[in-house]
Computed example of a mutant assay.
Amino acid sequence: MTYEGVLTKMQTEFSNPIQYYLVFENSFLSLNQLLGKSMEIDFVGYQCLNCGKKKKIFRQGFCYDCFMSSAAAGDWIMKPELSTAHLDIEDRDLDYEKKVQLQPHIVYLALSSEVKVGVTRQTQVPTRWIDQGAVQAIPIVEVPNRYLAGITEVALKNHYADKTNWQKMLKNEVPKVDLLKEKASLKYLIPKEVQDFYYPEKENLYELHYPVLEFPTKINSLNLDKSPNFSGKLTGIKGQYLMFEDGTVFNVRTFEGYVVKIVI
Score class of each variant (00 low, 15 high):
1 M>F: 08
3 Y>F: 15
3 Y>S: 11
9 K>N: 12
11 Q>W: 05
11 Q>E: 07
13 E>N: 11
15 S>F: 11
15 S>L: 12
19 Q>L: 13
22 L>F: 05
25 E>L: 15
29 L>N: 10
29 L>I: 14
30 S>D: 10
31 L>G: 06
32 N>E: 03
35 L>D: 05
36 G>H: 04
38 S>P: 12
40 E>T: 10
42 D>K: 14
43 F>W: 05
45 G>P: 15
46 Y>F: 13
46 Y>M: 12
47 Q>R: 14
48 C>V: 07
53 K>M: 15
54 K>Q: 11
56 K>C: 09
56 K>I: 10
60 Q>G: 03
60 Q>L: 14
60 Q>Y: 07
61 G>H: 06
62 F>D: 04
65 D>M: 11
65 D>N: 09
66 C>S: 04
69 S>T: 10
70 S>A: 13
73 A>D: 05
73 A>F: 02
75 D>S: 12
77 I>V: 13
79 K>C: 05
82 L>F: 10
84 T>G: 05
86 H>K: 14
88 D>P: 15
89 I>N: 09
90 E>M: 11
90 E>L: 08
96 Y>K: 13
98 K>T: 11
99 K>A: 11
99 K>N: 13
100 V>I: 14
100 V>R: 04
105 H>F: 05
105 H>Y: 05
106 I>W: 02
106 I>N: 04
107 V>Q: 00
112 S>L: 13
114 E>I: 08
116 K>Q: 01
119 V>S: 01
120 T>K: 03
123 T>K: 15
123 T>C: 14
125 V>I: 15
126 P>W: 04
127 T>R: 15
130 I>C: 01
136 Q>W: 03
138 I>Y: 00
140 I>R: 02
141 V>R: 00
149 A>F: 00
150 G>R: 12
153 E>G: 03
155 A>N: 02
158 N>C: 12
160 Y>M: 13
164 T>R: 06
165 N>C: 08
168 K>V: 01
169 M>R: 01
169 M>A: 09
170 L>Q: 00
172 N>H: 08
173 E>L: 07
174 V>W: 01
180 L>E: 04
181 K>P: 10
182 E>M: 13
182 E>P: 10
183 K>G: 09
183 K>N: 10
184 A>S: 13
184 A>D: 04
186 L>Q: 01
187 K>Y: 06
194 V>Y: 02
196 D>F: 09
197 F>V: 09
198 Y>P: 15
200 P>Y: 04
201 E>P: 13
201 E>I: 14
202 K>E: 06
202 K>V: 12
204 N>L: 10
211 P>A: 03
211 P>H: 02
214 E>C: 03
214 E>I: 06
215 F>Y: 04
217 T>I: 11
218 K>H: 12
221 S>A: 11
223 N>G: 10
223 N>A: 08
232 G>M: 08
233 K>M: 08
234 L>R: 00
235 T>D: 02
237 I>G: 01
240 Q>R: 06
241 Y>C: 03
241 Y>H: 08
243 M>S: 04
246 D>M: 08
251 N>A: 06
252 V>W: 02
254 T>N: 05
256 E>M: 15
258 Y>L: 15
261 K>M: 09
